[in-house]
C-alpha cells in the first residue's frame, strides 16, 4: 500500500500534488530522516548525560543535566588524543599515497592504449569485492616478515591498496569524460608527456581528486580488522579499535558514557565530511560502482 502511494508521487511529480499525497510524502521524508539519524543522535545524547541518567529506567529522553565529563575522561584518563592522531595520520597518508599511485594508473587505463588493459580492469573490479577477512592472514605474514608489526606502515600500506581499486575506477571514469582535445592541443603546442600530465591534466583533475580522496579517507578511517590485527601497542591504536575495546577494558562496569563520547568523537570528522561534500561522495560512489 505504502509503495503504491509512493509510486504515485514518482509518477506525477508536480501536476497532481494534492494535499493528501503532499502529507504522505512529508511523512515518508520524516521517517527516512529519523531512521538515518536516530541511532547517531541517541549516541550523542547518551554521551552528554550524567551517569545516573544513562542508567535510568525508564529512559531519560530530555535530561535536566548535561555534562562533558565523558569527553574529558577520554582525554585525561585515556590517550584518546593519541588515537585520533593515529587515525588521522594513517588515513591521510594512505589517502595521499592512494591518489598518487591510483590517478596515474587511472589515466593510463583511460587514455593510453596499453596491452592487457581489459585484464587489469577486470582484476581491479573483482578485488573491490574481496572482504578483508580473506586478506588478513596473508597480510599478517607479510607484516611479520617485514617486521612491520606495531608500525604505522602496517596500516598505511594495506589502506592504500584497499582504496586503489575504487580510486582507479572513479578517476578513470573522470578521465574518460575529460575532453581529449586538450591533451592533443598540448601535444601540438609542444608539451611532452610529463608536462601534459603535470601542467595540463593535473590542474583539471583537482575536483575529482578531492572526491576520490574523501572516499578513500572514509574507508581508511573506518577500517577495523587490519587495525585490530596488526597493531597491538596501545599508543598506536586507531579510534575504531580503541573505542571497541573500551567496553572490554574494565571488568566491573561498562563505561557507556565514555563509549558514547568516543563514538561521537570518532564519527564527527566523517559527519563533517558528509555535510560538506554530500554531492561529491554520491558522485564518486556511483561513478565507482556503475562503471563495474
Amino acid at each position: 500500500m505504502s509503495l503504491i502511494q509512493n509510486l504515485k508521487l514518482v509518477h506525477l511529480p508536480k501536476s497532481k500534488t494534492s494535499n493528501y499525497s503532499h502529507l504522505l510524502l512529508s511523512v515518508f521524508v520524516l521517517l527516512v530522516a529519523i531512521f538515518c539519524l536516530a541511532p547517531v543522535l541517541w549516541q550523542l545524547l547518551t554521551s552528554l548525560k550524567v551517569n545516573a541518567d544513562i542508567s535510568a529506567v525508564p529512559n531519560v529522553y530530555i535530561p535536566k543535566r548535561y555534562t562533558l565529563a565523558h569527553y574529558t575522561e577520554l582525554f585525561t584518563r585515556r590517550p584518546f588524543l593519541n588515537y585520533i592522531f593515529n587515525s588521522a595520520l594513517v588515513s591521510i597518508t594512505s589517502t595521499v599515497l592512494c591518489l598518487a599511485l591510483g590517478a596515474p594508473a587511472a589515466y593510463a587505463l583511460a587514455r593510453l592504449r596499453i596491452w592487457g588493459e581489459q585484464v587489469i580492469l577486470a582484476g581491479v573490479l573483482i578485488v573491490t569485492l574481496f572482504p578483508y577477512i580473506l586478506l588478513f592472514l596473508g597480510l599478517l605474514q607479510v607484516v611479520q616478515a617485514l617486521h612491520l608489526g606495531n608500525n604505522y606502515l602496517a596500516l598505511i600500506i594495506p589502506y592504500t591498496a584497499i582504496n586503489l581499486p575504487l580510486t582507479i575506477l572513479v578517476m578513470r571514469s573522470f578521465f574518460q569524460q575529460l575532453p581529449r582535445d586538450l591533451e592533443d592541443a598540448a601535444k601540438v603546442d609542444g608539451y611532452n608527456i610529463q608536462q601534459i600530465l603535470l601542467q595540463i591534466v593535473l590542474p583539471m583533475t583537482v575536483p575529482a581528486l578531492v572526491t576520490t580522496g574523501i572516499l578513500a579517507f572514509i574507508f581508511a578511517w573506518n577500517e577495523f580488522i587490519f587495525a585490530l590485527t596488526f597493531i597491538t601497542r596501545e599508543s598506536l591504536k586507531t579510534i575504531p579499535v580503541a573505542t571497541a575495546q573500551l567496553g572490554s577494558s574494565s571488568v566491573f562496569e561498562i563505561p557507556y558514557g565514555a563509549i558514547a563520547a568516543a563514538t561521537v568523537l570518532g564519527t564527527s570528522p566523517l559527519v563533517l565530511l558528509v555535510l560538506l561534500f554530500q554531492r561529491r561522495i554520491v558522485q564518486g560512489l556511483t561513478a565507482g560502482a556503475v562503471k563495474g
Binding site: V29, V32, A33, C36, L37, P39, V40, W42, Q43, T46, I218, W221, N222, F224, I239, P240, V241, T243, A244, G247, Y256, I259, A260, A262, T263, G266, T267, L270, V271, L273, V274, L275, Q278, I281, V282
Partner: peptide, 23 residues
C-alpha cells in the same frame, strides 16, 4: 535529507555497532 540519508554509510561500522549494542 539526501545528506542525512547517506550518513549511516559513511560512519565507522565498529563505532556504530557499539551504538546499536547500546540501543
Amino acid at each position: 535529507v539526501r545528506t542525512i540519508a547517506i550518513l549511516p554509510w559513511a560512519l565507522p561500522t565498529a563505532l556504530m555497532a557499539l551504538a546499536w549494542a547500546w540501543i
